[in-house]
Design a protein around this nucleic acid. Sequence first.
DNA 1: AACTTTTTGACAACCGATTGCCATTTCTAG
DNA 2: CTAGAAATGGCAATCGGTTGTCAAAAAGTT
Lengths: 348, 348
Amino acid sequence: MSAPPSTSSSGFNAAAGKPATIHDVAALSGVAASTVSRALSTPGRVNFRTRARIEAAAAELKYIPNAQAKALSSGRTKAVAVLVADITNPFYFDIIRGTQLQLKAAGYTQLLVDTEESEEVEANSIEQMLQTADGVILTASRLSEEALTLSATKMPLVTINRQVTGIPSVILDTPTATNQALDHLISLGHSQIAYLGGPASSNSNIRRWEALNAAAKERGVEVLKLGPFAPRTYAGAAAADALVHSGATAGIVFNDLIAIGMLQRLQARGVRVPQDISIVGCDDIFGADFCSPPLTTVTAPVEQAGRVAVTMLLSQINPTLGTLPRQQSVLPTHLTIRGSTGPAAVPS
Amino acid sequence: MSAPPSTSSSGFNAAAGKPATIHDVAALSGVAASTVSRALSTPGRVNFRTRARIEAAAAELKYIPNAQAKALSSGRTKAVAVLVADITNPFYFDIIRGTQLQLKAAGYTQLLVDTEESEEVEANSIEQMLQTADGVILTASRLSEEALTLSATKMPLVTINRQVTGIPSVILDTPTATNQALDHLISLGHSQIAYLGGPASSNSNIRRWEALNAAAKERGVEVLKLGPFAPRTYAGAAAADALVHSGATAGIVFNDLIAIGMLQRLQARGVRVPQDISIVGCDDIFGADFCSPPLTTVTAPVEQAGRVAVTMLLSQINPTLGTLPRQQSVLPTHLTIRGSTGPAAVPS
DNA sequence: AACTTTTTGACAACCGATTGCCATTTCTAG
DNA sequence: CTAGAAATGGCAATCGGTTGTCAAAAAGTT
């Protein structure tokens, strides 16, 4: 049957350059629009032969379902928002990479949102995403427990590095490895150790310091707390100066960004690493392995954290698979020893 | 007036936990839904007092317009897709950062898409985005000129580092600075110079090599072409070996990723940089300043490229402002000299 | 005061799907 | 051969807005 150039009411093919709609497909295959919808989504709901016809028509017209219309009528957007505090930070890039990969594999779109380290922007973004996304992944949330719990009742939510009862979360277990770092330094003979802290509002920072402090007490050494420092390389200068001034021979740093900045500053000041001072970073970001000296750091599976978060979120969004969605996932970390740590300087 | 607990037809307030709609706002302020729509979008179209009432009602109900519905009826999604070839590459992160910042400032959402270095995935993604986004930014497109031109007729498009007549583009003028790099090396006494190329399908790679080759001829030196190498640090090992084997005393490398990988490999092999071999990178990515030795490289305003691309795209999407949208924007780059280049080794 | 011009707001038709409900048709079984 | 179940496809309402059209109201003119 060749298509007659019908001058009838509404042309069923995309005469204009406009993309084909479900109605075009319906017209071409001689069924109702609803049937097309069912054929394409509910496999068993439509006759085998009919479906074949419809699929052929869809292919011919290069039909691509309109995401907006789909979202409006179904309530599902097939999009997930990933909120990061600061897109400038390489740490988040690894997370984004992980979420992107996993979301794409599941056919979801990633909405990247920068909350600019602001609690307010974060809250607004979540509110906004309520309608725009099927779920949200919060990396290093600044929100209060109450606010988070409330948000979690409104939509699927997964946090990374933020633990709140009742909210699924992915935790990078850095405290454990930070304690390893402490042991590492102690075994190298260090006794004056400092912790160079990150933002006061950072949950990871608090957890890490508490674990470190407790571990230090256990081992009978004292750990000095310095900071807070902004999680940027340039803050490393201040951190380095503070460390030198404190008299400690080793520093455990909130993250690699600051640690790398410290390395540069120490070098500029003529302080040798690790001969004069040892430095331990955290995260093992891009660059930690090739800075000078290569950074001893706590390696965390950051990208994997992003992937796991997506998996948990999706199982929350589509609870079909019988398996109960995991509520929590703790990812192990480990200490990677490179060149920035060494034996404590012998007091001359 | 206190709100009576009316049992009338449809409750106008969000009795359930559902977000308020335009109808709720309309009911609460006693006007039609269309009036609410106009009050909120077309400022002068609605009476001052009425608008105030509506805005108050909207605020009270915490009304947030539904993005999907808006998109469906208006045809505009307020979203822009940014296609990157490989989200793993730090280079793209700088672009993403730039686009994110600028898009957010304009109230647009960024849809991040990884095309996995595949022409097909890229083509599909564009097709998909036709309905989902108001415009697309293509970073380092792999598509043919015809395909690009065709796509550009269907929706607003801006390319980065890809020049096709008729399509607005942002070009990072690396060739010019690469030639500076050549002069730099020549002035240091190098005469055996190699270009370590990137992916054969990369447009930047081709442009850069052509410029370099032409410049070399002008200056009467010979530049050897090696590669292609994948734009990854691990490819640096092969690149380094190839460079050493070639006998050249200096290498101009496709990008910093490879260059940094080379630095590591050369160090492992005991080849000193810059004493034995000089290396020039490209892009000045995160890490180029603190690797060992710090990398001499072509600094490109990558983040700015992202921002400019967004600006150009938006002026294409909203041609209101009278000014003609710029068709092309060439961003200057410069050579940043650090520690990886030095005088040519005197043949012993 | 009568008439024209401008504002302002409501009605209703989309946008492109999904989905509950119902009418056929087909298959199975009694 | 027919009643009843299962499979199949269509109608129409709905999602939450936008926007063209038009009537009513307000303002301005003479």
